[in-house]
């Protein structure tokens, strides 16, 4: 496959960036999108140019490190992570636009790498359970109803890649935050901090400069893990419940 790539190049956080065009040949349909970028970088390095910086780690679609906007879609045309997107979804001769996640709360570090530590700070504000450490508790000591376990698992699938923020026209982190809130709030283990968790995480999300939700639904469409839009509805319900309780 022969491709024309238009990639966002930006030397550092303060530099002006621009879309730069590259021609690349010898791409096979079995390559992942990141392997295609690897091939481009090899070519750039051999030519004495600076390789394109991009985040990646497991390349198995489970870590959430990778993620770029491909032709206007977060993670590209398929519902998966960038590392699990294969070149068979493109045609020979295609021009592909590659851009970093765009959000005020995700500043560009270099090229396609953005700083997503705002997500870590949201987790730090309540995405945990306060449990004394020690030996693992007896598995049957806390009964978890099956629907609650299923719901928690569905939300726990969130890998924090940031595609929801990148896809959202308002740069909102509602889908991410709701997945993390619901994951713990539906479980008995998360019950002691049920109210403070949602209040603190939503407050932190706002402090980080993410936008608000307009229910456009772009986030749920982009999510490689299929976190549903109704996850946001559930978090809103939790937030309203916690606000009423905290007001007493």
């Amino acid at each position: 496959m022969r491709l024309t790539l238009r990639i966002w190049r930006q030397a550092n956080a303060d530099a002006e960036g621009a879309m730069t065009t590259y021609e690349i040949d010898g791409i096979t349909e079995d390559m992942s999108f990141l392997e295609m970028l690897d091939a481009l970088n090899e070519k750039l390095i051999l030519a004495g140019d600076t390789p394109v910086a991009f985040d990646h780690d497991c390349r198995e679609g489970i870590c959430g490190a990778c993620g770029v906007v491909i032709n206007g879609d977060a993670h590209g045309p398929e519902r998966t992570t960038t590392c699990q997107l294969h070149m068979r979804h493109f045609e020979d001769g295609d021009t592909i636009d590659v851009e970093p996640w765009r959000a005020g709360a995700f500043p560009v570090v270099k090229d396609l790498v953005v700083d997503r530590s705002a997500f870590d700070r949201i987790i730090g504000s309540g995405g945990y359970v306060t449990a004394p450490t020690g030996a693992a508790p007896e598995a049957h000591a806390t009964a978890v109803p099956k629907p609650a376990a299923d719901s928690a698992f569905e939300h726990a699938e969130c890998i924090g890649c940031g595609a929801c923020v990148a896809a959202c026209p308002n740069g909102a982190a509602m889908l991410f935050t709701s997945a993390k809130v619901n994951h713990l709030n539906v479980l008995p283990q998360g019950a002691p901090e049920r109210e403070t968790r949602v209040l603190d995480m939503v407050a932190r999300m706002d402090e980080e400069g993410f936008g608000g939700c307009t229910l456009a639904g772009e986030c749920a469409t982009a999510c490689p893990k299929g976190i549903p839009l109704t996850s946001i509805t559930s978090m809103n319900r939790e937030w309203l419940r916690a606000t009423r309780k905290a007001g007493r």
């Binding site: 238009r6 206007g72 765009r102 959000a103 005020g104 709360a105 400069g209 608000g212 456009a216």
Partner: peptide, 24 residues
């Protein structure tokens, strides 16, 4: 909220797509 939303997405994508419904 609109002011906040605009500030939260200061840079537009070069490759733009309008996918949300007309009403939205």
């Amino acid at each position: 909220l609109s002011r906040r939303d605009r500030a939260a997405r200061p840079t537009k994508y070069v490759h733009r797509k309008a996918r949300t419904s007309y009403a939205t």
